Simulated scan of single mutants.
Amino acid sequence: MPEFYSSPFDDEDYKVFLKKLVTHFNLDLSGYKQHRVRRRTDILLKKYQVNSYGEYLELLLKNKDNWHEFLDKLTINVTEFFRNPEKWEYLKQEIIPDLMKNQKPTLKLWSAGCSTGEEPYTLAIILHELGIANKSTIIASDFDEGALQKAKRGIYNEKSLINLNDEYIRKYFTKIEEDKYEIKDFIKNNVTFNKMNLLFDDFEKNFDLIICRNVVIYFDNEAKEKLYKKFYDALDPGGVLFVGSTERIFNYKGFGFTSIAPFFYKK
Rank of each mutant, 00 (worst) to 15 (best):
F9Q: 04
L18Y: 08
G254T: 10
Q103P: 06
F81V: 04
E247V: 03
F264S: 10
Y53F: 15
L123S: 06
L29E: 07
G238S: 02
K175W: 11
L227K: 10
K108C: 13
I132Q: 04
N77Y: 02
K171C: 09
L148V: 08
A140G: 10
K47A: 12
V243Q: 00
D144E: 11
S259H: 07
V240D: 07
I169Q: 06
S30A: 11
G117R: 01
T75W: 00
K267V: 02
K159G: 09
Y172N: 01
N51W: 00
L61Q: 15
D208C: 00
P8L: 02
P85R: 07
L148C: 07
I43H: 11
S136K: 06
D220S: 08
D236Q: 12
A223C: 04
I95C: 10
D233L: 13
A112P: 08
N51Q: 12
D144G: 08
K62L: 11
E145S: 14
K150E: 10
E145G: 09
A151S: 11
F82L: 12
K195D: 02
D144Q: 04
K229Q: 15
F70N: 01
V50M: 07
F264A: 07
K188A: 01
T192G: 03
I169M: 03
S30I: 10
D185A: 15
K19S: 15
E129Y: 08
E86I: 14
N157W: 08
P120T: 00
F173A: 01
D220W: 04
K46A: 12
V191R: 00
K184I: 05
L61F: 03
G31H: 11
P237M: 01
V16T: 15
K62D: 12
I210V: 14
D28F: 08
F9H: 11
E58C: 08
N134M: 12
